[in-house]
Nucleic acid binder design. Structure first.
Length: 646
RNA sequence: GCUGGCGUAGCUCAGUGGUAGAGCAGCGCACUUGUAAUGCGCAGGUCGGGGGUUCAACUCCCUUCGCCAGCUCCA
């Protein structure tokens, strides 16, 4: 073999090595290590994801992806969905197939079959999939002309859905690819894992209806969802996560702990905060208010409704009317419940002629708004029709915007850390196609957002063109205890409202200028945040938020007087405490307070009464032993005041 | 809106043509108790609403309301 039969392969670390022409990335992986060859699922050759078995015929850069990488995981799940289709075809001959992509968590395949799939079928399909995996079928890619593929799906393997995909979606492609594994063939771009044997653990999760190409006038297919993992532990962990999420469902815990309710007969999507929930809300609000006044915000209160003039001027009646509650007529004037607080804050801004010396103005309000959400999308506390935003508006000058954004980001970090959320992700959204405001404003504002993120040393994901029509924004998502991401905060520039309401300030030059306006919500809404908080803590709130912080329980009536003494001392120290006087066994009382997730229980029997001390039990942790009452109270006050997270 | 599932006691659920059941919670009585359920008893429901079939409907049929999951993530 002469030297010119070799090609040069460059790796991500910059190293390179020569291989014979026609070598595959799998061969390369094997030459590096056995482990890599085992784990690698797909390769990126010259920036393009390809099958591992594809021969490489020229000098190339090669990168390997395993299951731990997004790219590898997608391929793993994609091939799994093909294996599922094969299993379905074997078990239910005649089934036709729509689309079967990998998704954020797992994969699905849309199936058209006379048979209606049940949970028992899913188990059978799973078993068959593992059987197909054991057969170690090699996945083979075949490229052919589009017309030939159409002919194939019209005659050899009749599937009208694939034909439609080829005739419609893929109409601009000259060549398309098929993937074969054993007797199964599917139309697919790929790439795929080299063999079905890579599939080790799979769980089919659910089956639900879905319309062919999302069109409710078309055929409805059965969509089977599933997920798969190379390691059994990963699958077990995932199933555990699903179970845990179900246990933590805020609607369930909200009922168990008597936190809130909603009433369809009194208006869907409107939240009633029960005493226990109200305590948590008051604590959150107190914290929120103090944080804002400490952070040099001023607090506002504004009305719940406004005349149509306000919403005509703001433009909400033009672009937001469908989401607003219908107006009520008073004195021949139309009044609307507010869907946003901004116009009200602007009204306050306009009560004075503002000077550059007044800026920045940072105005915050816990403002309750009403938005008409479709009944199908309402969901517990997470999607409601009436909610209280922790809203703020910052009016500032051109020179101030960057430092203001930096402050908001720092403020958000502080607030979330205090509430027990340590993982935050940042998303920057830029100018969409339809937008108001001059380009120079967009550039200036977007730069200030980027600079602020960089200044704080924060990584962010870019959503090009994802901004609102009135300005660019940063969204902040937090991760909860189960690793789920929730979008809470948003920091948005607004070039629209200052224009519409003709906001101005007098600059140093004595001339009128338009201020920048930034909308900012941190928690998003009290209702939604409450729901997330419930799930994050699974109802076992940190001491400062717990509706009942301490339960005092005598073992028998003989210690009741002593228990009352202890109870009053704790109560007078400002802690939320309850005395359990019931004549029940101590085991019964403890179980009861444990299920209420009360952080601390104080058990008082003869021993404690005689020694003048207390025995403490902590939620989930059990007996902590004996304490002096005063010392215990001060440690609890410390825990409460520092908002300690357990 | 569409598809599927569900709607029975305060809560969690069983019942499937012969006029409704359990556990927990509640109330009463007894027990005076040492770290996740003491025992016995009582009470509690127009089986989501309306209509129909039937001698008889929680059960079957129609209709309506609500809840849950999904209907976007492109061969």
């Amino acid at each position: 073999m002469s030297n010119n039969e070799n090609i040069k392969i460059t790796f991500p670390d910059g190293n390179s090595k020569e291989f014979p022409k026609g070598t595959s990335s799998l061969d390369i992986a094997k030459s590096i290590s056995k482990g890599l060859a085992e784990d690698v699922l797909v390769a990126e050759v010259n920036g393009k994801l390809v099958d591992l078995v594809m021969p490489i015929n020229e000098d190339s850069s090669v990168k390997f992806y395993k299951f731990a990488d997004d790219e590898g995981r997608k391929v793993y799940w994609h091939t799994t969905s093909h294996i599922m289709a094969q299993a379905v075809e074997e078990l239910f001959p005649g089934a036709k197939f729509g689309v079967g992509p990998p998704i954020e968590n797992g994969f699905y395949y849309d199936v058209d079959s006379e048979h209606r799939f049940t949970d028992e079928d899913l188990v059978k399909i799973e078993e068959r999939m593992l059987d197909i995996a054991k057969r170690d079928l090699v996945t083979k890619r075949e490229e052919l002309k589009r017309e030939d593929a159409i002919a194939y799906f019209k005659s050899k393997r009749v599937d009208p859905y694939k034909v439609e995909i080829l005739e419609d979606i893929a109409k601009n492609e000259e060549y398309v690819s098929l993937y074969h594994q054993g007797g199964f063939t599917d139309l697919c771009r790929g790439p795929h894992m080299p063999t079905t044997a890579k599939l080790k653990n799979v769980k089919l999760l659910s089956v639900s209806g879905s319309y062919w190409r999302g069109d409710s006038d078309r055929q409805q297919l059965q969509r089977i969802y599933g997920i798969s993992f190379p390691k059994k532990k990963e699958l077990d962990d995932y199933i555990h996560l699903l179970e845990e999420a179900e246990k933590r469902d805020h609607r369930k815990i909200g009922k168990q702990l008597d936190l809130y309710s909603t009433h369809e007969e009194a208006g869907a999507g409107l939240v009633y905060w029960h005493p226990n929930g109200a305590i948590i809300r008051m604590e959150l609000e107190d914290f929120w208010r103090k944080a804002h006044t400490d952070g040099n915000y001023e607090l506002l209160f504004t009305p719940h409704m406004g005349k149509s003039w306000l919403w005509e001027t703001s433009g909400h009646l033009d672009f937001y009317k469908d989401s607003m509650y219908s107006p009520m007529e008073i004195d021949e004037q139309l009044y609307y419940m507010k869907p946003m607080n901004c116009p009200f804050h602007i009204m306050i801004y306009k009560t004075h002629l503002r000077s550059y010396k007044d800026l920045p103005l940072r105005w915050a309000e816990l403002g309750t708004v009403y938005r008409y959400e479709k009944s199908g999308v309402l969901h517990g506390l997470l999607r409601v029709r009436g909610f209280t935003q922790d809203d703020a508006h910052i009016f500032c000058t051109n020179e101030q915007i960057e430092s203001e954004i930096i402050e908001v980001i720092r403020f958000a970090k502080y607030v979330f850390h205090s509430l027990g959320f340590d993982h935050m992700n940042y998303y920057l959204s830029t100018k969409p196609e339809k937008a108001v405001g001059e380009d120079s404003l967009w550039v200036k504002a977007t730069d200030s957002l980027i600079n602020a993120l960089k200044h704080e040393g924060l990584d962010y994901k870019l959503d090009e063109g994802g901004g609102a029509f009135y300005g660019p924004k940063i969204d902040i998502k937090i991760k909860d205890a189960l690793g789920r991401e929730w979008q809470l905060s948003t920091i948005q520039f607004d070039f629209n409202l200052p224009e519409r309401f003709d906001l101005k300030y007098i600059g140093e030059d004595g001339k009128e200028h338009r201020p920048f306006m930034v909308h900012r919500a941190l928690l998003g809404s009290m209702e939604r945040f409450f729901g997330i908080l419930i799930e994050h803590y699974a109802g076992a709130f940190p001491l400062w938020l717990a509706p009942i912080q301490v339960a005092v329980m005598p073992i028998a009536d003989a210690q009741l007087d002593y228990a009352k003494e202890v109870y009053h001392k704790i109560r007078n120290s400002g802690l939320r405490v309850q005395l359990d006087e019931r004549r029940e066994k101590i085991g019964y009382k403890i179980r009861d307070w444990e299920t209420k997730k009360v952080p601390y229980m104080i058990v008082l029997g003869d021993k404690e009464m005689q020694a003048g001390n207390i025995t403490v039990r902590a939620h989930k942790k059990g007996d902590l032993g004996k304490f002096e009452l005063d010392a215990f109270i001060s440690s609890l006050k410390e825990e409460k005041d520092t908002k300690k997270i357990n």
